[in-house]
Amino acid sequence: MAPIRPYRSDDTAARAAGPGRPKDLAKREAILDASKTLFVQLGFDAVSMDQIASAAGVSKLTVYSHFGDKETLFAAAVESHCANGMPASLFEDRPSTPVRERLMEIATAFYAMISSPEAIAGHRILCSPQLANSHLPQLFWESGPRRVQDGFAALLDGRVAAGELDIADTALASSQFFTLLKGEPHARMVFGCGCGGDVNLEPATHVAACVDMFLRAYGRR
C-alpha cells in the first residue's frame, strides 16, 4: 500500500488551474471555508454555487475556475476538513516515539475531528435519504476516511517492520482502529442523544481504552 502523500492546498490548486496563471490560493481557501459551512448547514442539494460564491466573497466564475463543478468542490471540502483535523504529518514515521504514544496522538486527533459539530452534521447529511443512494457517500469516503486509513496503515507497516506490532493485514487493522474509536459514543452523537446511558466515558478515557485494546490485539508478546 502506498504511503499517504502530504496534503498541500497548492497542489490541488495547481491541478485545478491547469495551464496558465496559478489560481489565487486565498480565494480558493475562502471558497473551501464557505462550502464547508454551507454544505453542513443546508445539505449538498440545497447549496448552489451562487451561494458559495457569495459567502466566499468571489464571483461564481471564480468558484468554477477553481473547482469545475459542485461535486469536485464537495470532495475538496471533505479532503480539506480531514487534512486540517488529521494532517499528513500526523502519520510520519517517528521510530523513536513509543508506539502507544503515537497511537494515542493519532487516536486523540481522530476522535476530536469526528466529534466536532461540523463532522456530526455532515455525517447526518450523508445518511439522509436524499444522499444515501447517490454516489456522494462514496466520494466522501474516498476523499476523507480512505485517506486517513491509508496513512495509518502505512504507519502500522513501519511498526510491524520494526518488530513492535504483529499485524498480518495492516489495512484491516487500520479500519478496525478507527471503527473502535468511533464506537458507541459517535453513534450517540449522530443520533443526538449524547454519550449518556451505559457508556459514559470521558473522551480521553475512551480513546485510551481503545488504544490499549488495539495493542492487546496486535502488540508484540
Rank of each mutant, 00 (worst) to 15 (best):
S115A: 15
E29Y: 02
A53L: 03
A88M: 07
S128V: 08
P145Q: 10
I52A: 08
A56E: 01
I52G: 07
M49T: 15
F214R: 02
E142D: 12
F177L: 12
K27A: 14
V47D: 07
L61H: 03
C82R: 03
T37C: 04
V47E: 08
A77F: 08
A121S: 10
I120R: 01
Y64V: 07
E184C: 06
T179K: 13
A13S: 15
D93H: 12
V78N: 02
M189W: 04
F191Y: 04
V78H: 01
D11A: 14
G85M: 09
K60P: 00
C127Q: 14
A173H: 07
G18H: 07
N200E: 09
Q176V: 15
D212N: 10
L136P: 00
R15P: 00
V63F: 06
K70A: 04
A34V: 08
P129L: 09
F74P: 02
Q176G: 12
H66R: 04
S65R: 15
D150L: 13
L155M: 14
P129E: 03
A187F: 12
P3R: 14
V47K: 10
V47C: 10
A112C: 02
L32E: 00
S115R: 04
S143T: 02
P117H: 03
R220F: 01
Y7G: 03
L61S: 13
T62S: 13
S48H: 05
E202R: 10
A17M: 04
P185L: 11
R94I: 12
Q41W: 01
Q149C: 08
D198E: 12
F191P: 00
R102Y: 00
E202N: 02
H81A: 14
L42V: 01
M1E: 12
C195Q: 03
T72Q: 10
A161P: 00
K182F: 04
G192V: 09
Q138R: 12
K60L: 04
G151H: 06
M1C: 12
Q176D: 11
L25S: 06
H81S: 08
R220C: 03
S9P: 00
G18Q: 07
S116R: 06
T37R: 15
G163V: 09
T37P: 00
A55I: 05
T170K: 05
A209S: 12
E92R: 11
P6M: 09
V63W: 06
S143C: 07
N133R: 12
L201A: 14
G192K: 05
F67A: 07
L32I: 14
P22M: 03
L139D: 02
I125A: 15
H206P: 00
R220N: 02
A14H: 08
T97S: 11
